[in-house]
């Protein structure tokens, strides 16, 4: 199974079991994530035999819906709860990608998750990387999961 398929499987599992929200892949992988507008990005770094970054880019309105479902309460502004929830999604995705890339879990280290948010920003690495950018859809809107691994 290709890593794209495994990331899709992992993302669906996380959203179904923890966020309590239906999610599915929304078409083929994208070439670039492009400019990110009014978005929250959760990201986690990988170091060791595989170096890179795993990120989840969620538009504000979708992030509010996801956090509300995740926490079981209404959230109507981008606050610490939203940033923490998006960071935790990146953490869970990163941990599962680590398991996909390393069976024993010892030869890849994960950073702590962090978040970026703002009106408009780009997400680009300086290194030569293999990139996978996967679009997903929910009833509240779409989001992207991006994995960059150093060649």
């Amino acid at each position: 199974m290709e890593i794209s398929e495994k990331i899709i499987e992992t993302t669906v599992e996380i959203f179904t079991t923890m966020v309590m929200m239906d999610v599915s892949a929304d078409g083929p992988p994208l070439e670039v994530s492009g400019a990110l507008c009014d978005t929250v990005t959760g990201m986690i770094g990988l170091a060791g035999t595989h170096k890179g970054v795993l990120a989840i880019h969620i538009p504000n309105q979708v992030a509010l819906a996801i956090t509300s479902s995740f926490l079981g309460m209404d959230v109507d502004e981008i606050n610490d709860d939203v940033r923490d929830a998006v960071g935790e999604l990146a953490n869970m995705l990163g941990g599962n990608v680590k398991t996909i890339l390393s069976q024993n879990g010892r030869d890849i280290e994960l950073s702590l998750p962090s978040t970026i948010y703002g009106h408009e920003y780009g997400f680009k690495t300086a290194s030569d990387v293999d990139m996978v950018i996967l679009p997903f859809k929910t009833a509240a809107g779409g989001f992207m999961v991006e994995l960059q691994l150093e060649k």
Binding site: E13, T17, M18, N91, G94, N104, G105, R106
Partner: peptide, 27 residues
Amino acid sequence: FSTETGDDIIGEAKALGAVGAIKKPFT
């Protein structure tokens, strides 16, 4: 409770006294 459930890591945690592990995501 962790996303990291590689055999080595869980083995180390159990050797240090952890009695079990639950993988995130969980129900």
